[in-house]
């Protein structure tokens, strides 16, 4: 196991009227490969903020985030998102007018995945996540929430980047589907990925190897 992502002295502030309000204060944590992390905290505590910083969707204001000892700033945010991390959101974030398979292929195109037959590979990834060919060919608005979230996960597996970040990935799903999705994440962690899940759900958190809790801008290890 290696130290993949390191967060050092991270602060994050939002404009609040005239003054700046710190949501994250002096965060120092490390994420390793092969582990499932849960980040918990009350609503508004800064979980999504931390996740968008880890995923390169928002830029680091103060402090540093490194990937294999290289700062995101040096890597470049677009390159970082394209090559090193994958994000999954509560609302799946698929392109609505495309079919499931087209969504996966779009990710392959953007991430410059080199395989002989992209379509075949995409079907295969979806198949492994329990999406059959017939479902894969449907437009994403015509498949269930659980299936959409699997498509979003499939999109994160098109290349062998090691980090998967998820913000409330089961927030819109019923308990049974939630369990299925958690199993997928656990399996991915076992296969060597670094999986970081932001969640409200106790059910999700209890499967994690490590639980971080954000409180008043600080982060603490809750379970190790």
């Amino acid at each position: 196991m290696e130290n993949l992502i390191e967060v050092k002295n991270l602060y994050h502030r939002y404009e609040d009227g005239q003054k700046m309000r710190a949501v994250l204060k002096d965060i120092n944590i490390t994420f390793e490969t092969g582990k499932l992390y849960a980040v918990v905290g009350s609503s508004g505590s800064g979980k999504t903020t931390l996740l968008s910083l880890l995923s390169g969707l928002d830029s680091v204001q103060d402090g540093d985030i490194t990937y294999l000892d290289e700062s995101i700033n040096d890597i470049g945010y677009t390159k970082y998102r394209k090559e090193f991390v994958n994000v999954i959101f509560q609302s799946y974030n698929l392109i609505n007018y495309m079919t499931a398979i087209q969504n996966v292929i779009t990710a392959m195109d953007i991430k410059k995945v080199k395989v002989p037959n992209k379509k075949e590979k995409a079907y295969e990834i979806l198949e492994n996540l329990g999406i059959d060919k017939e479902t894969a060919d449907r437009e994403v608005l015509k498949i269930s929430g659980g299936e959409q979230q699997r498509v979003a996960i499939a999109r994160a597996l098109v290349h062998n980047s090691k980090v998967i970040l998820a913000d409330e990935p089961t927030g819109n799903l019923d308990d049974d589907t939630e369990d299925e999705i958690i199993d997928i994440f656990k399996d991915l962690a076992l296969k060597g990925k670094c999986v970081i899940i932001v969640t409200h759900s106790q059910n999700v958190a209890k499967h994690a190897d490590i639980i971080y809790e954000i409180k008043k801008g600080k982060i603490k290890i809750k379970k190790d």
Binding site: K79, R81, E83, I95, I110, K111
Partner: peptide, 14 residues
Amino acid sequence: KYEIGVLLSLGEDK
């Protein structure tokens, strides 16, 4: 907007 956000999160160049 949403579609653009998705593409950007996948690492697409603007």
